[in-house]
Amino acid sequence: MKVAYYPGCTLKTKAKNLEDAALASMKALGVELEELNRWNCCGAVHSLADDDLIHHVAPVRDLVRAMEQGSDKVVTLCSMCYNSLARANLIMRDDEVKRKTINDFMDEEEDYHGEVEVVHFLNFLRDEVGFDTIRAKVKYPLNGLKVATYYGCTLARPRNVAIEPPGGTRLMTDFLDAVGATPVKFADAFTCCGSYQIIANPENAVNVAAGILDCAAKAGAEALVLSCPLCEFNLAKKQGDMIQSGKISKGLPIFYFTQLLAAALGLGKEACRFDLNDKCSVEILKSKNLAMEAVAGIA
């Protein structure tokens, strides 16, 4: 199976663990993700003003690229890219007036009418690969690892692009189940991590992120799984500051869902890239004798 793939900028630098683990897992599952030949930043956030169409151009241009390559479907990993592409796609499919204005402006590109379907990787795993297939190919199940299922905003809101029906956590729950981990539901599964306010109002964003970590820990989670590099930054990379300022008492391991997939499939270090995660993430796997090959030698 071959499918068009939109990576997003952050996956090429700060979130290599998200991408590397996905590509290696797909290879192991017999799926070839074909990266778009040309692509630009998706814009990360959807513009919400009725008269502001120029900010939809970036994601639409990417969808035109997918169409040019003959794809009727494009798979994304980053939650923000997914949200931005999917919402722009709905405008191009459903809003005749806006579609015409945007197509007229982009006169150097083919006209686009929403021909390409934007699919998040989790949906792709469930619907195209199948959780049963994954379960059958799992070599080292992540037995006994209690993982909080964190969706954040952009996989769940607004409803017309949510990766599963409102309030549902079945997708991540079933995914974790397939890789042998123990899913932990918690109240803040859909709470925003503070997002881009980490730049403008870092103190506020860190407070919100600390609350999410605290909530997950109190629900009995030993780790948290997510799909967005900005959530990862606020929830994982900022943990040092949070501990120092007393906002949380101890670190909570944070994993990209693709890393847990790669580890369960028995893939090695280069695939799982746990070297790019926080120390405590490696420690929890070691302490539970999980993904031994993938964490061997990582200090």
Partner: peptide
């Protein structure tokens, strides 16, 4: 990171450089 991919840069280039594409490449590292 303020680029909106409008592609006006590429349209304006008298040398036919794919300006938006190189800006995208820089953002992608």
């Amino acid at each position: 990171f303020r680029c909106v991919a409008c592609n006006n840069c590429t349209k304006a280039c008298p040398m036919g450089v794919q300006v938006l594409d190189y800006i995208s490449a820089i953002k992608q590292g």
